[in-house]
Write a protein that binds this DNA or RNA. Structure first.
Length: 269
DNA sequence: GCGACAG
DNA sequence: ATCTTGTCGC
């Protein structure tokens, strides 16, 4: 199978022009480790049960990255952990770094995963008792051209159950804005809160959900790693105070806040 | 060939 | 992702 088709190696630092073949190869390789079903030891707390027992899911993480408007390459990676019982933040950490890797649709993980993995690893090494049992990611899971978005990438590399949350639809397998509207409205005449995203091929890529009553714009849920779509949807519903589930919303808010405060400090100097 | 394209 | 104020409504 050794086929030296890559006789024209590009610069190691720059991305290879022929469609990012290296990145595609890495995604294909990592995808072999992907687990698309529930694979965890914890149990989901019953709705309305305030007692907490050992073995229940309690710590849910959320990750996001914000960028500086002035210095487009300066970014703040953020990890927050919420207590599922109260949806309050019990842990937060930031990493302000320079990111040179560009954003290329379909390859978001190569831009954002490294810094997020670093923050996760730092927390794990610290021995914090709040280390997340589940991670929600700002970006898609298998709802992706090659079925391996950022949430899958992070899940496999951190060996954590992950859920992908998209605020916009990444067009895949014939799925587009109008198709989603179609599916959402075709969901009977009832107010079903979510619909499966079925592509032209018949494959189910995830779910579109109107998480808040009266909200027109849905969020897009997809499997990251070690979790089923059914479980993912349930957990998103449990953490949605607003349109975006609280772990991701908090990561987003605090990440922006970090950059905002940083700019204030700049003027003081 | 042209447009679409998570964050 | 980021640039950005007020404003309509429960």
């Amino acid at each position: 199978m050794e086929k030296p088709s890559e006789t024209q190696e590009q610069e190691p630092s720059s991305t290879s022009l022929p469609g990012h073949q290296n990145w595609i190869a890495e995604q294909d390789l990592l995808r072999e480790k992907l687990i698309r079903e529930d694979s965890f030891t914890w149990k989901i707390p019953e709705d309305g049960c305030w007692d907490w027992e050992e073995g229940l899911l309690r710590y849910v993480g959320g990750v996001d990255i914000s960028f500086s408007k002035d210095e487009a390459s300066m970014a703040c990676g953020t990890l927050v952990v919420l207590d599922l019982r109260t949806l309050q933040v019990v842990y937060e950490d930031f990493s302000f770094v320079n990111i040179q890797v560009p954003y290329v649709p379909g390859f978001l993980a190569f831009r954002e995963a490294p810094i997020l993995l670093e923050i996760l690893e730092k927390m794990k090494k610290s021995g914090s008792s709040f280390y997340p049992q589940l991670l929600m990611v700002d970006g898609n899971g298998i709802l992706h051209p090659r079925g391996f978005g950022l949430a899958c990438h992070l899940g496999v590399e951190a060996n954590l159950p992950t859920i992908g949350i998209g605020k916009n639809l990444h067009h895949v397998d014939g799925l587009n804005q109008s198709r989603v509207r179609e599916l959402l409205e075709a969901g009977e005449n009832s107010c079903k809160d979510f619909i499966n995203l079925v592509g032209c091929s018949g494959h189910i890529w995830g779910a579109a959900m109107r998480s808040t009553q009266g909200s027109i714009k849905p969020i897009f849920i997809s499997i990251g790693h070690r979790i089923s779509l059914q479980t993912a949807i349930k957990l998103v519903q449990m953490t949605c105070k607003y349109r975006v589930p609280e772990p991701i919303r908090q990561a987003d808010i605090r990440s922006r806040d970090y950059i905002r405060k940083l700019k204030i400090n700049m003027r003081m100097k």
